[in-house]
Amino acid sequence: MTAIALLVPGGNGQLGQELAAKAPAGSVVHNPGSKELDVTQAGSVVQAVDALLAEAGDRPPIVINAAAYTAVDAAETDRNTAFSVNADGPRLLAAVCASRQVPMIQVSTDYVFSGDKTEPYEVDDEVGPKSVYGLTKLAGESSVLRSGADAWVVRTAWVYGAFGSSNFVKSIVRLEGERDNLSVVDDQYGSPTWASDLAEGLLELASKVVTGNGPAQRVLHCAGGGKTTWCGFARAIFEELGADPDRVKPCTSEEYPRPAKRPANSVLSQASWVNAGLTPLRSWREALTEAFQTNLVSR
């Protein structure tokens, strides 16, 4: 892939660190964490984009926004912070990118959908988030697409990876060692996505964008292939640990209430990604096996 000048707000998170690690050889990479770059502060955003351009040389610049407020349940009572990071932040980034003619990729979520559909969601299906988190991410999508920037929105789902303090896989690994049995929700379907695979997909898209071959479709879905439930996901993690998957017991969403309502089905179709000439992510189960084989999940 072409060497690029890459700015990754949210660069200390599980996706941001993967993007920095996998950027094409010869690239300039700025991956500031939230303490270094507060995307809700216009001056900080301007400074970050201008610093990237100053160092870019002949490398084409691009921004991949991995900064997000991802505490789904906490967002229900911390609406202002969630909207600030997930809606205002992308709006400011997109405005600066538009003024500097820098293309941008905004990472979004499957939780913009209601979950009422039984088939995988396509990019043009009706949105209808059931949580504050989903509402804030949808607002971020809208502001980016209306900004005038050369921008794409990429929705993904159920992301886990080596970096960051916590994700579903790391939590299940910990709980396997602490409890005899676990009860895990078995009536919510989605597409687990390894951050390593997602980063490769986003960088493939970035390469097309900076060479002038970006897809006409401005909203895309990029998630692991296939589907499972949280219970099925947890059982697969037990299998990778060499533990008995029958120790994971199914329960319903009603039996395990959470502050934020989750969609019953948020499986994302890979059709838009394939139609854009991009490489579809492998099956979630195959990716999970490699994640454990490379010891990345246990970092």
Results as ranks from 00 to 15, higher is better:
Asp88Lys: 14
Glu176Leu: 05
Ala260Leu: 08
Glu178Pro: 00
Val63Lys: 01
Trp152Glu: 10
Gly89Met: 06
Cys231Ser: 13
Ala195Pro: 06
Pro9Tyr: 01
Ile172Leu: 05
Ala157Gln: 13
Asn86Asp: 09
Asn167Tyr: 07
Leu135Trp: 05
Ala67Gly: 01
Leu37Pro: 01
Tyr189Met: 10
Pro129Asn: 05
Val184Thr: 02
Lys261Leu: 14
Ser143His: 14
Ala48Ser: 11
Pro129Phe: 07
Asn12Thr: 12
Val248Lys: 10
Pro245Gln: 09
Gly89Ile: 07
Gly134Phe: 06
Val185Met: 07
Val184Pro: 05
Pro24Ser: 07
Tyr133Asp: 09
Pro245Gly: 09
Pro259Ser: 13
Gly148Met: 10
Ser34Val: 06
Gly16Pro: 04
Arg146Glu: 15
Ala276Asp: 09
Val49Asn: 06
Trp158His: 15
Ala271Trp: 00
Val29Asp: 05
Leu268Lys: 09
Gly164Trp: 03
Gly128Cys: 08
Cys222Met: 08
Gly277Ser: 12
Leu7Trp: 03
Leu278Glu: 03
Asn213Gln: 14
Ala56Phe: 08
Val132Pro: 09
Ser166Met: 12
Gly226Glu: 08
Ala3Val: 05
Gly242Val: 08
Leu93Asn: 14
Gly115Gln: 08
Lys227Tyr: 11
Val123Pro: 12
Thr252Gly: 14
Ser191Tyr: 00
Thr81Val: 09
Arg155Cys: 10
Asp150Tyr: 04
Leu281Cys: 04
Thr294Cys: 05
Ala66Pro: 00
Ala98Glu: 12
Val173Thr: 12
Lys208Arg: 13
Ile105Tyr: 07
Val127Leu: 05
Asn295Met: 01
Val209Tyr: 02
Val63Gly: 09
Tyr111Cys: 04
Pro103Asn: 03
Ser283Lys: 13
Gln293Met: 04
Ile237Lys: 10
Asn213Trp: 00
Asp38Met: 00
Val267Pro: 03
Ala66Phe: 02
